[in-house]
Write a protein that binds this DNA or RNA. Structure first.
Lengths: 118, 118
DNA sequence: CGCATGTGCAACTCTTGGGTTGCACATCTG
DNA sequence: CAGATGTGCAACCCAAGAGTTGCACATGCG
């Protein structure tokens, strides 16, 4: 149920792809609020069919954001923050990196401005 | 060129949607590396047409991740880390929230286990 | 001016992804 | 056992999005 991915890049990729869909984010909120829930139960709280929910859960599972365990005839899904957390850190690092580069570029531009003022 | 959005939710939404596409992420990397670039220049470094790049830049601009300024007959785009940073914070907060809820649920479950052991 | 270069707009194709319905299979419960 | 409940699988529909091509318009430069 939980397929392994290779590297942080792939993980981040999956998480971003999953989070792009609003229904999926809503699904995660519902799961976080309840701790555990089945596709059928979740579908009752959403304007979509159970099958649609199942597909979304499959995507979230592949991204590592959710985990499903079978209990008797039902499958209970729960949220798993690790992947989300990793992606948050990745984004923060990326933002910081951009800031760094932009600062450097700005500094260079100002230096050039001093050397040859118009 | 820079349309205003309302609220953090909308901003996060746009950023997540933008970041879901690999070409767009690549575009952001290129922009961060160069500081400034035109759609035509960027297209040369990518396996897609200039028009495709223009469309992607429009999406990124709407999400607030990029800003385009006209210089003569060309439009130079630059990365703008603010929105990315905001989304990173949002994600980190979300992850923390999930952790909190999961911890609570686990605690409750354990308490129930103590009260009525099987 | 005349040409090269860069952008903007529009129409079109094609694939992907979200969503649905229908039915078969498994599992609990009276 | 029989019915109820929950999942799984498959085929199908449809809109959105990524990408393309063609051409018109603007701006820089010899």
């Amino acid at each position: 149920m939980t397929d392994e991915r290779h590297g942080v890049a792939g993980e981040v990729d999956g998480v971003l792809g999953s989070l792009a869909d609003p229904t999926r984010r809503q699904l995660l909120d519902l799961l976080a609020a309840r701790g555990e829930a089945t596709a059928t139960t979740l579908a009752e709280r959403l304007p979509v069919s159970r099958q649609a929910v199942v597909k979304h859960l499959a995507v979230l599972d592949a991204a590592g954001l959710v985990d499903g365990r079978r209990v008797g005839r039902e499958v209970r899904y729960a949220v798993r923050p690790a992947a989300l957390d990793a992606t948050a850190r990745w984004m923060a690092a990326l933002a910081a990196d951009w800031d760094r580069r932009l600062a450097t570029i700005k500094r260079v531009a100002e230096a050039a401005e001093r050397d040859s003022p118009h």
